[in-house]
């Protein structure tokens, strides 16, 4: 039996998040998969049209409802479950949105969930990291059991867009969505810098930056390089950088071409987030810091001297 995959789209109401194109790529590695994308929104038109152009997508299911204006798992999960019948796999991204939602879907279905899929060996066999990426586990679901999965973003390239579009079908939301969960607000710092999760260059700072003020030398260099800025947990906990900048096991897992760790010791939980970076640069005054074990280029020294020097050299 060939796979029939439902990818649950992530979006902000206007634009499809690139995470969805990565889920589609993952779905395409299931041989002969038929792929549909579900878009839940208050007005899904624009997002559905973007999903319809992703390479490999055969149809888009648009679920329009005012309650879908905000991505609340308790509101969305029953709508996806109502569509789940014919599908063998339901995939969403391993982003906070997808992790929150997909597990609720799995719970409603009583289905197993494979979290953070990093490789597909067959329609029933998947590889995923455990222990903060210090071990890779291959799991196998029984034949004929629906599998819910979240897709590890750093493991799949985004599916390309194509010229023609797959058909978009409107699906009515039958049951009234629950009202026990209400959206209040979202505060995003919102910067002009590239998005941490998709940037090809990332510069991250650790506790050594010493203050939010200290981070400015990283922003300045990042802006010269067109890089995104990340942070270690210690830097976020200390209030030097906002939470959405955290990289690691409990922050963002990223795979840039270039990752520069500045004043970061290299705890395993941090390294989990950068394992797939193409090139890692470490700048640390302690030559014994564990970050040097994974760095392609290591420079021992004081960051407050080195970063301005680099900025001058590239500027």
């Amino acid at each position: 039996m060939s796979a029939r995959v439902l990818v649950v789209a992530e979006h902000d109401g206007a634009r499809l998040n690139p995470s969805t194109a990565r889920c589609v790529s993952c779905a395409r590695t299931l041989s002969g998969a038929e792929i549909a994308v579900a878009v839940c929104a208050a007005s899904p038109g624009a997002v559905a049209a973007q999903a319809a152009r992703l390479e490999g997508v055969q149809r888009v299911l648009a679920l329009e409802h005012p309650a879908n204006a905000h991505a609340l798992a308790a509101v969305l999960a029953p709508q996806i479950v109502a569509l789940a019948g014919p599908f063998t796999h339901l995939l969403g991204p391993s982003t906070t949105y997808g992790k929150d939602l997909m597990a609720r879907i799995a719970g409603l279905l009583g289905a197993p969930q494979v979290s953070d899929i990093m490789g597909v060996e067959s329609a029933t066999r998947f590889r995923r990291p455990i222990y903060a990426g210090n071990a890779i586990l291959t799991v196998e679901a029984a034949e004929g059991v629906k599998v819910v999965g979240t897709v590890r973003m750093a493991s799949f390239e985004a599916a390309a867009s194509r010229g023609d579009a797959a058909p978009i079908e409107s699906v009515a939301v039958s049951a009234p969505p629950p009202t026990h969960t209400r959206f209040v607000s979202v505060s995003a710092a919102g910067s002009d810098r590239p998005d941490l999760q998709t940037a090809s260059r990332v510069i991250s700072g650790g506790r050594a930056l010493g203050s939010a003020e200290g981070f400015k030398i990283l922003y300045s260099l990042a802006d010269k390089l067109g890089a995104a800025v990340g942070a270690s947990r210690a830097a976020v906990d200390a209030g030097y950088a906002p939470n959405e900048m955290q990289v690691g096991q409990t922050g963002k897992i990223i795979a840039p071409e270039l990752y520069v760790a500045v004043g970061i010791s290299g705890a395993i939980q941090h390294l989990t987030g950068i394992k797939d970076a193409r090139t890692i640069v470490a700048i640390n005054k302690d030559g014994e810091a564990p970050i040097f074990e994974v760095a392609d280029f290591g420079l021992v020294g004081d960051l407050f001297e080195i970063i301005p020097q680099i900025e001058k050299l590239v500027g």
Partner: peptide, 27 residues
């Protein structure tokens, strides 16, 4: 148990890198 644990493996190791002496060499 709906997911059989088939195999555990260590993650692939990164190649050991090099040390550079200063900012100029790094750039």
């Amino acid at each position: 148990q709906q997911l059989k644990l088939v195999r555990f493996e260590p993650p692939p190791q990164r190649q050991k890198g090099i040390r550079v002496k200063d900012a100029a060499e790094l750039v």
